[in-house]
Design a protein around this nucleic acid. Structure first.
Length: 698
DNA sequence: GAGTTTGAAACT
DNA sequence: CAGTTTCAAACTC
């Protein structure tokens, strides 16, 4: 049991460790091509492992339910690889005892660096004598334990563990464990050398290397060669294990979850939006509704982990506000790091998974209050009997539609950009009316592969569609919503008939004016025309054609326009409290050179909030559309790109930092140089990979 | 709710 | 790169 717990509590740490081991100079994730093929292959292999796991897991009440976690474990091991460099170091260590000290010390420092200040470090040596364990079997057992864990047991388990203290303790143990492995190489524990190691030093060491990390994460150990095979994909699945692991650990998957898992095989934990009132962890049916799950920022969550349970809860709370599951580079974080698109995607995906997992962990003991989750949950519970359209409308009317996309795809399998969910980087949720949907956690690999493929075709495919000119960045306190035209659609629209006055137009839908990038004809975009004229409400430049009775976008007079604009602004302002639109704007950071959108000054923008008022001032269809589709995107973006707490390091920033997606931004250097945030920084996974020097803070 | 329109995405 | 097709959302009735 203790091992199981360790795996849970240390999962985030492991994530951290892996990142820290990575070579900073090297892209965090391999963005090599042919990933699709490789992935397919890996998929197959993973499935095999899956099956094996399932066979080994008699406790699996539901094939898929139990299977996925198992699969995750397998994946975990495979993908959860340290950087090649790190591994090589380990391998060298295996072959040369002289390197051992370096490996141990360096790895330890890298692994725990200044991020994890644990007393356990000092005790490691004392435990080197500890008999090396058969980690494979141990972990296997542990994983089985997880699956077999009955709700009751789990419950008692949860109760018996104090998150804060246990986490601390677990880390220490894990560290000890890790060192108990290394000594084998160093000769300090020759007795513990496995036969494998003796016969295959390199692989053995690699295994150990893997074990040393996977032990913490609870991943099962597989053939080292396989690990190599998937190493380049390590980043993509980095967070998965934790998700599953956590879920399993949580072991509180309610019965109804299983009941619903028939068609919805995904069994990742989801929390009831009602957890507000119910402190109990209430995972809900997952798979389709995953996108509604809040994936708070990694860093925040990790911070939460490092913090006291109280802080934990608070952070989680706030972090959950955005309620979006980003699985792709659509998140703004992409713009903050000079990584490849693939990396971005992978990172984001991983992060999201990570977030999910961490979130789950947190929620084991602390309730989560998340509007999105709630809405998602409610949608699941209440909308099931409604037609997709009704669901959509209802949600939209509730202003919750923006929180969770729901598609209606029939042919695309939700694996193309046609699918709003997919395009938004979220999994399809239960309310979706899609047919033959593959955009589910169950098909993670497929989704990843597809996304990667699409990105290979168009690196910006998942990037925010609307960007904001840097020079138009508003001053603090300025309501950027007043200048929607300052934001521009990344590519511009191509409208022919809609006059850019309907939501067919992406610019209009995004609440931004058309720009020179647009190839639209007869542009009448109320947010600003291609020719640069007329930003509604700001300059009264609406011209006759805008006032024409075209398309019902009829405006009687400027005052009305103003009213509408007002409405629009209000809508912008009516963003959910957790949606730091303005804040985000203030903090938007420049795109990395790689991510810099074509022909634009590159500031991702949030054109509007997701909370357009349900009521329209004039009792008729508003000239302004309901929250533009991109809002959701923007929300995430803004949240992502708002490392305010990192930038300012102010106490207040701490609160803001709980915004869900901020995790992604976290500029490493800032974190490094912000002593006041040290405790938080410790567990900001997101930043870890790019940490220039983790050892400097020790 | 069914059918149409629209334009982005995907394909050739 | 341009033209065409496919697709699903937006819209209309």
């Amino acid at each position: 049991m203790s091992i199981t717990f360790h795996m849970v509590t240390l999962a985030p740490l492991c994530f951290l460790l892996r990142h820290q081991l990575s070579d900073p100079a090297k892209p965090e994730f391999s963005s090599d091509n042919g990933s699709v093929v490789d992935r397919n292959k890996e998929k197959m292999d993973t499935k095999k492992l899956d099956e094996q796991k399932e066979n080994m897991d008699p406790g699996a009440s539901n094939g898929q339910v139990a299977g996925e976690p198992s699969c995750e474990f397998a994946k975990t091991f495979r993908y959860d690889r340290d950087s090649l460099k790190a591994k090589h170091v380990a391998e060298h260590a295996c072959n040369s005892s002289t390197l051992v000290p370096l490996v141990e010390e360096t790895s330890l420092r890298q692994l725990y660096g200044g991020e994890v200040n644990l007393d356990g470090v000092s005790q490691i040596d004392q435990h080197k004598e500890a008999a090396s364990c058969d980690w494979e079997s141990l972990i296997s057992d542990a994983s089985d334990l997880l699956n077999l864990e009955s709700p009751n047991n789990t419950e008692s388990f949860e109760k018996s563990v104090d998150p804060a203290t246990t986490f601390y303790r677990s880390i220490k143990n894990a560290m000890q464990n890790m060192h108990s492995n290394c000594p084998v190489v160093s000769g300090e524990q020759v007795g513990g050398l496995s036969e494998n190691l003796l016969t295959q030093p390199g692989e053995g060491c690699e295994s150990m290397d893997a074990e040393s990390h996977d032990i913490i994460t609870g991943s099962s150990i597989t053939d080292p060669t396989e690990k190599m095979e998937y190493e380049h994909l390590s980043g993509l699945y980095r967070g998965m294990r934790r998700r599953c692991l956590v879920f399993e650990m949580a072991g509180v998957r309610p019965k109804h979850l299983e009941e619903n898992s028939g068609s919805d095989s995904s069994v990742l934990p989801q929390f009831d939006g009602n957890t507000t009132s119910n402190p109990q962890l209430v995972p809900t049916k997952r798979g389709n509704d995953s996108s509604c799950r809040v994936l708070p920022g990694i860093g925040l969550h990790l911070n939460a982990l490092a913090a006291t349970p109280k802080d934990y809860k608070i952070v989680n709370h706030e972090a959950s506000a955005s309620g979006r599951l980003l699985i792709g580079p659509s998140s703004s974080s992409n713009f903050h790091r000079p990584t490849s698109n693939q990396e971005l995607f992978s990172n984001n995906l991983a992060d999201n998974f990570m977030e999910r997992e961490i979130d789950t962990v947190e929620n084991v003991d602390f309730p989560v209050e998340d509007p999105c989750q709630e809405s998602g949950y409610m949608a699941n519970e209440e909308m099931n009997q409604c037609s997709p359209k009704k669901k959509r409308r209802r949600l939209e009317q509730d202003g919750e539609a923006e929180a969770c996309k729901r598609c209606n795809c029939k042919k695309s399998k939700c694996l193309k950009l046609y699918c709003e969910c997919f395009a938004a980087g979220v999994y399809c949720v239960e309310p979706c009316a899609c047919i033959d949907c593959f955009n589910k956690p169950v098909h993670e690999d497929t989704v990843l592969a597809t996304r990667k493929q699409i990105e290979s075709r168009n690196p910006l495919a998942f990037a925010p569609k609307v960007i904001r000119a840097s020079d138009s960045r508003p001053e603090v306190g300025e309501d950027f919503s007043k200048t929607p035209a300052s934001a521009r659609h990344k590519r511009g629209c191509n409208c022919k008939k809609s006059g850019c006055l309907k939501k067919y137009c992406e610019c209009y839908q995004g609440g931004v004016g058309c720009s020179i990038n647009c190839r639209c004809e007869g542009c009448k975009n109320a947010f600003g025309r291609k020719d640069g004229s007329g930003v509604l409400g700001t300059d009264h430049e609406l011209e006759e054609d805008e006032l024409d009775t075209t398309e019902g976008a009829v405006l009687d007079d400027s005052s009305q326009r103003m009213s509408i604009q007002s409405d629009f602004e209000q809508s912008m302002d009516s963003a959910p409290p957790a949606t730091p639109l303005r804040t985000g704007r203030q903090l938007v950071q420049p795109f990395s050179s790689k991510r810099k959108p074509p022909r634009s000054s590159s500031f991702p923008s949030i054109s509007s909030s997701s909370g357009f008022p349900a009521s329209q001032p004039f009792g008729k269809p508003s000239f302004f559309p309901p929250p533009p589709k991109f809002d959701k995107h923007f929300e995430c973006i803004m949240e992502d790109e708002v490392p305010e707490f990192l930038q300012e390091g102010s106490p207040a920033a701490g609160i803001k930092s709980s915004s869900p997606n901020r995790k992604r931004v976290s500029p490493p250097q800032r974190m490094e140089t912000s002593p006041s945030l040290r405790s938080s920084r410790k567990l900001i996974l997101r930043s870890i990979p790019s940490f220039p020097s983790l050892t400097t803070n020790q």
